[in-house]
Amino acid sequence: MNRRQAWYLVGVDGGGSGTRLRVASADGTVLACASAGPSALMLGSDVAWRAIGDAAAQAFAQLGEPVDWTHCVLGCGLAGVNQPQWRAAFSEAAPPLLRLAVESDAYTTLLGAHRGAPGVVVALGTGSIGAVLDARRQFRVAGGYGFPSGDEASGAWLGLRAIVHAQRALDGRTVLDDFARALLARADVRARDALVSWCTRATQSRYAALAPTVLAHADHPFAARLLAEAGRNIDAMVAALDAGENLPVALCGGLALPMAKYVRAEVRARLVPPAGDSADGALQLASMAAAQSSSVPR
C-alpha cells in the first residue's frame, strides 16, 4: 500500500441493481469512487463479494494501488441483511480485513442523509422503506416488506397500480386516453393479449419503469388518486417512526423530489435535503467500526 496511507475506510452501498463503493482516508476524506454489478445478499454471498471486489479494484486503481483488504476497514449497507442466514454467509466469506461492519442499506441511507444525527428517512425508488434513528440512538424501520404486497409509494407500487388503467382502457371499460396510451407505449404493447403476456412476465423493475409515466400524467384523475395515496403512505411511515413529529425528515431515492409535494403540509415543513447517500453512510459505518476496534492503527 501507499506508505503515506497506513489504512483505508471503504464504504459499500449494495443493492439489487448495482454496487457503489467509496474509499476514504482515515479522516473520512473521499479518495476514490467506483461502481459494479449488484451485491444484494439474496443473490448470494459469492455474487456480493465479487461485485464488491470489482468495485474495490477499480477504486484502488485510481489510487495507483492494488486492493489489500488487510489495510481496510469495510462498512457495508446491503439489501437483504435482515435475513440472518444471508448475513452470516456474507460475513463468513469475507476476505481478511482490519474490521468489517455490515448493516442494512436502510441504516446507511439514514446515516448518510442526516450525517449520523437523529432523523427520519423514507427511501423511494424501485422499492420503498422508512427508517428512523431516534434521540436515544435507536434504529427502527417501517414498511419495506417487498413487492408486490409492500413497498408503498415506490416506483413498482405506482406502476403495478397504474397498469390497471391501461387494462381497463383496452377492454373499453374506460376511455383509451393519453394516459392509457402512454402506459401501453412504455410497456411496448398494443393489444390485450400482448398486455396479458407483459403482466405475467413483469418484474418489480418493469413496473417501476412505469412510474415516470404516472408522474408525467399527474393531472389525470386516475394518476392523481394514485399519487395522493402514495403521499398518504409516506405520511403513515413518517408518523409510525416519529409520532412526536420532532425529527427532520429526508426523502431519498429517485422518486424523492417528485413525491415531496404529495405529503401532508406538516411533514413537508420538516423535510430537509439529504446530506449524503447510502455510500456516505457506509463510510460513516466504517469510521465508527474503526473507532471501536483495537486492531486499527492509531
Rank of each mutant, 00 (worst) to 15 (best):
Y262S: 14
L21K: 03
D235W: 04
Q204W: 04
L160A: 15
Q292K: 03
V196N: 06
G11V: 01
E152A: 08
L78P: 07
M1C: 12
A236C: 08
S278E: 13
T203P: 11
V121A: 09
V296M: 00
G11F: 00
G254S: 04
G53K: 02
S39H: 02
D105C: 06
A191S: 09
A89K: 06
R225F: 03
G53M: 04
A239G: 07
T19C: 13
E229N: 14
E229W: 10
R232T: 10
P258T: 09
D105V: 07
A59R: 01
R161Y: 04
S294A: 10
W157R: 09
F179T: 08
A106E: 12
Q167I: 11
S149G: 15
T126K: 03
L63S: 04
G146Y: 07
L195V: 08
P212R: 02
F139V: 14
D105K: 04
G253C: 07
A224W: 10
V30C: 14
G172C: 06
Q58V: 06
R161P: 04
Q292F: 01
W49M: 03
A202G: 07
H220E: 06
D235M: 07
G254N: 05
G146P: 05
A250C: 13
L271W: 09
M1T: 08
F147N: 13
S278N: 12
Y145I: 09
R140C: 13
D178E: 11
L210S: 03
R206C: 12
G44Y: 01
A265T: 15
A101R: 12
P66L: 01
R3C: 15
R50A: 10
F90K: 02
N82S: 15
T70E: 00
D242P: 03
R192T: 15
P118F: 01
R22L: 13
A93R: 03
P273F: 02
G253Y: 09
S104A: 11
A182K: 09
D151P: 14
A216V: 11
L9D: 01
F179V: 06
E152C: 09
P212H: 07
H114C: 10
W198F: 05
T109S: 15
P95D: 00
F179R: 04
G80F: 03
R99E: 02
R115H: 15
A265R: 11
A106I: 07
A79T: 12
M259P: 06
